[in-house]
């Protein structure tokens, strides 16, 4: 039987709503205003209707071309990041000790990369990967591999991906570890009595129990990689050419570099809508996974 909901408690959210309105809703309204106009500065605006949106969504135009290029680049980047970090994070979590003094040591070591600010990570890797004074770049070059992340697109991509994996895999690992720790010992004992293989234990006990944290991990890593700005900006500045110009970098170039407020506003609205849609899907799946489980357990 369905219970009637009482929404009156939502009025308690009003203070937060006022704060969010001030910090997010009003600026967003301004962006919408900009997206349908053109400006030459000095607060003078000219009506352009849906012109910028039409240009943005037409790959044969200059704006549309660079938008779709940056969008595919960003999606590809997110896909690669998820494909590497999620399995690697699970593997690391499975390998971490469950008891003893090494647990604390492991947790601290894993948390260390997460504490470093984005621009510092970018700077570390920028120096680390340099061919002349960086350890990584120097070693790779002396192994006979022609590696130069400022000159070759592929090298730039590899460097950014390795940097992101170094920075964020531990987040996935820590989340999965928390999921693993919550599995009662009785499950493993039952599996041992049944003579389950290591793989069977992973597939039927550990993976289902990690499902919720894994969903959170995928959502966090997807959003972070889809919105990545600082690290590639510091490391490659979007180059060589436009090879690592992700959506966020392109957006900043457009808005602050060229001061094309109208085009940039249209691009940010579309960018925002994509993120909103993906977030909604993730959120819905996440909340319903729980609801399903509660139903099953009930």
């Amino acid at each position: 039987m369905n219970k009637t909901l009482n929404h009156k408690a939502w009025f308690l959210v009003l203070p937060v709503f006022a704060l969010v309105a001030f910090s997010a809703v009003v600026p967003l309204m301004t962006v919408v205003n900009y997206s349908v106009q053109d400006t030459f500065g000095n607060n003078q605006f000219f009506w352009n209707g849906v012109g910028w949106f039409a240009e943005l969504l037409d790959p044969s135009r200059e704006l549309g071309g660079r938008f779709f290029d940056a969008l595919w680049r960003t999606l590809l980047f997110s896909a690669i990041i998820l494909a590497i970090e999620i399995p690697l994070g699970i593997a690391v979590a499975l390998a971490m000790p469950r008891e003893g003094w090494t647990v604390a040591l492991c947790l601290v070591l894993m948390a260390l990369p997460l504490l470093i600010p984005w621009n510092v990570v970018g700077t570390i890797w920028q120096v680390f990967a340099r061919g002349d004074i960086g350890l990584l770049g120097w070693v790779v070059n002396h192994l006979g591999i022609d590696y130069n992340y400022t000159g070759h697109s592929l090298d730039a991509w590899v460097t950014i991906i390795v940097m992101d994996v170094w920075h964020w895999t531990s987040l996935v690992a820590l989340l999965c570890y928390a999921g693993l720790k919550s599995i009662p010992d009785a499950y493993y004992q039952a599996a041992r009595i049944d003579g389950a293989s290591r793989w069977a234990v992973f597939r039927t006990i550990q993976l289902p129990k990690m499902r919720r944290v894994l969903l959170i991990a995928v959502l966090l890593r997807f959003m972070d990689s889809f919105m990545i700005y600082t690290e590639p900006f510091v490391l490659t500045g979007g180059g060589p050419g436009n090879a690592t110009t992700f959506l966020s970098i392109d957006l900043v170039k457009l808005a602050l570099g060229q001061f094309d407020l109208g085009k940039a506003a249209a691009m940010s609205i579309v960018y925002n809508l994509i993120i909103l849609a993906i977030c909604w899907v993730f959120y819905t799946v996440m909340t319903n996974v729980d609801a399903d489980r509660e139903r099953v357990e009930a």
């Binding site: 009003v26 309204m29 301004t30 919408v32 205003n33 900009y34 349908v36 106009q37 400006t39 607060n43 605006f45 009506w47």
Partner: peptide
């Protein structure tokens, strides 16, 4: 509110 660049169309939309 000049910096927000309001037009009657966007005003209508948000209203």
């Amino acid at each position: 509110l000049a910096w927000m660049a309001w037009t009657w169309q966007t005003g209508l939309f948000f209203a």
